[in-house]
């Protein structure tokens, strides 16, 4: 990805300016044909890297929210493309329609046959519209239930990937039972006799997220967030001022570190320097390695043990704070 087209977040502006300068200088250096600027360029690149490292080491919850929503961050289909062999997408809820905000199907993860599903936000205007920006309608959750039924029947572990601002609030969605669809999907996760691991890769927004995240293990990427409502939503309801999202993001404890402390997630997947979007391949590989390690012990459990473990896990939340 070239520097010019790269998407910089607000807090990255000083880095953006520096990198623009580096780019200019390196062009100048090329046209001048000499190597006189090389030392200086290396120093500037090192400085940019240092600035990025510092910025990402101290991201506040609102900055993390921006990173979690970064348009170049790897999305569900990026994970499927890199981690799932012979992926075959299965579409439709067999009741009304196919909702592309949740994509799912069959494939093999490092040799293990799996059902894989997740929210897909899309990466350009066309695909964002197709996937409704990752905000699912009831059909998405009913498709998830259908996929989990299949996982149970064929003894396939379920890998789910969470990346949604929330379930879609629309007339049609309400009409067709959005609440019921979410409730049934959460319920299906909890009754599943197959291993299930949920990974929050971007934004874990509210009921629309937990509907496919009530799993045996819940992983979260270093800069991902998981929350009961978006910071903007909380700001407009509690502060009555949508611009207080930064305060809401901090108050709601939505970062990976906070969630580990609250025992809402089990493990953090570290991201490459500068966030998952800086090196998607490395980010995805890191998720793959941890998923593989986490899945292994679950594969040895019986359906009853899996249900018991899941129930114990969720019942324990909030009963003690280490």
């Amino acid at each position: 990805m070239s520097v010019q087209t790269r998407h910089y977040l607000e807090f990255e502006r000083p880095i953006a300016e520096l990198e623009a300068k580096i780019e200019e200088l390196s062009k100048l250096s090329e046209t001048a044909g000499g190597n006189g600027l090389d030392t200086e360029l290396d120093a500037l690149r090192a400085r940019a890297e240092e600035m990025r490292r510092d910025a990402y080491a101290t991201l506040d919850p609102w900055q993390k929210t921006q990173v979690a929503r970064h348009p170049e961050r790897p999305h569900f289909l990026s994970y499927v493309g890199a981690l799932i062999e012979e992926f075959v997408e299965l579409r439709g809820d067999r009741k009304f329609a196919d909702d592309q905000a949740i994509v799912g199907g069959l494939g093999r993860f490092r040799g293990t046959p799996v059902v894989v599903m997740g929210h897909e936000k899309g990466q350009d205007t066309t695909t964002r519209l197709k996937h409704n920006f990752g905000s699912a309608r009831p059909e998405g959750y009913r498709k998830a239930v259908r996929l989990m039924d299949m996982a149970e029947q064929f003894n396939l572990p379920v890998l789910s990937f969470i990346d949604t601002a929330g379930a879609y609030p629309g007339i049609g969605a309400e009409e067709r039972g959005q609440a019921e669809a979410i409730a049934r999907s959460t319920e299906r996760c909890l009754t599943l006799g197959a291993p299930m691991i949920a990974t929050v890769v971007g934004e874990g927004g509210s009921g629309g997220a937990i509907a496919i995240a009530a799993a045996n293990r819940v992983l979260i990427l270093e800069h991902a967030i998981y929350s009961v409502i978006s910071p903007e939503g909380a700001a407009s309801i509690l502060w009555r001022d949508g611009s207080r999202a930064r305060d809401a993001a901090a108050a709601m404890k939505i970062t990976a570190e906070d969630l580990i402390r609250l025992k809402i997630v089990d493990r953090i997947v570290p991201e490459p320097l500068g966030g998952a979007h800086a090196d998607p391949a490395a980010a995805i590989a890191a998720v793959g390695d941890i998923l593989e390690a986490e899945l292994k012990p679950l594969l040895a459990l019986t359906p009853d043990e899996l249900r018991r473990q899941r129930a114990d896990r969720f019942y324990a939340i909030g009963r003690s704070f280490g």
């Binding site: 009961v228 108050a251 939340i317 909030g318």
Partner: peptide
Amino acid sequence: GALSLMQMAR
């Protein structure tokens, strides 16, 4: 926060 979200599962 997310502790309330977890009540949906619990």
